[in-house]
Amino acid sequence: MSQDSGLSHQNFDDYCAQKAGPPGSSVYYALRQAPVARQPLLTALFALRGELEQTVKETSDPAIGRTKLAWWQQELGALATGRPSHPVSLALAAHGADIGTEAGTLEALVAGFEMDLNQARYLDFANLRGYIEKVGGAFAGAVARVTAREPERAGEWAPPLGNGLMLAQLVQELGNDARHGRIYIPIDELQRHQVTAADLINRKYSAEFSELMRFQTSRARDALQAALAGIPASERKTQRTLRAQSAMALALLDEIERDGYQILHQQIALTPIRKLWIAWRAARAR
């Protein structure tokens, strides 16, 4: 899995760009709202998240997945000591002079995705929150610090943005996740709405499912709106990437709602031109 450390900047930057978010993706448009000088580091961070997510979601054997994540833990240790070998960690080292300060955050990200290999159900929202805070909140903190005026304070307001983005992602990807045996809606919420895991896996739509998704969508929307309102006035201009991501996520939740939550058999998405417009407008809003 290790790579030739003699790779050129262009090579590992190109690799990261494809892994983070290819043209047309929401991440692609969100990254382009950041200052040009900071885009390579942000792209590398999103590429790392993409590598980890792909490892757990495209590996059918949990043992293999754990081996790959253990390798990433070692690679992040090598990154912290100046000995990276993978294109993503080479990019992080090249563009983030102080990337070592994010070691704890990046390790939390790996630990969060490892949870996907250890459990596919969550008893209640308090249980699910631990997962969301690692793969969503902690990551958003790292993203925010790249461009923040006061990076040392980003941990106070950025994690809720990441948590909201994860809640929105879990709504969008519900059908695909269920088909792969992962159900992120807490068991007690399924029971309260009289929807079973088998209903989700077998793509069974019902009035009860619609009510369940109305609740899930509202929670994600409320979380995102509250998190956006919580960005300090002094940081609003610095957080164009997270604000663009959030705006696209909110628009997609609205689209899912308008379509009657038909997400078990398909993945609803915004068109690239709409993503471009929403991201551009959100990044420049006061």
Rank of each mutant, 00 (worst) to 15 (best):
A227I: 09
A229E: 11
G230N: 12
I231R: 01
I231W: 05
P232R: 05
P232S: 06
A233Y: 03
E235H: 04
E235D: 07
E235F: 02
R236A: 08
R236N: 02
R236Y: 03
K237I: 00
Q239L: 07
Q239C: 01
T241A: 10
T241L: 15
T241P: 04
L242I: 05
L242G: 11
R243L: 04
R243P: 00
R243Y: 05
A244W: 02
A244T: 08
A244Q: 06
Q245M: 15
S246C: 13
M248Y: 10
A249E: 03
A249P: 13
L250R: 08
L250Q: 08
L252Q: 08
L252D: 08
L252M: 10
L253H: 07
D254P: 00
D254L: 09
D254T: 13
D254K: 12
E255M: 11
E255N: 04
I256M: 04
E257D: 15
E257T: 14
R258H: 13
R258V: 07
R258N: 12
R258L: 14
R258I: 05
D259P: 00
D259N: 11
D259H: 05
Y261N: 06
I263E: 06
I263H: 10
I263S: 05
L264D: 12
L264P: 11
Q266G: 00
Q266Y: 08
Q266I: 03
I268G: 00
A269C: 07
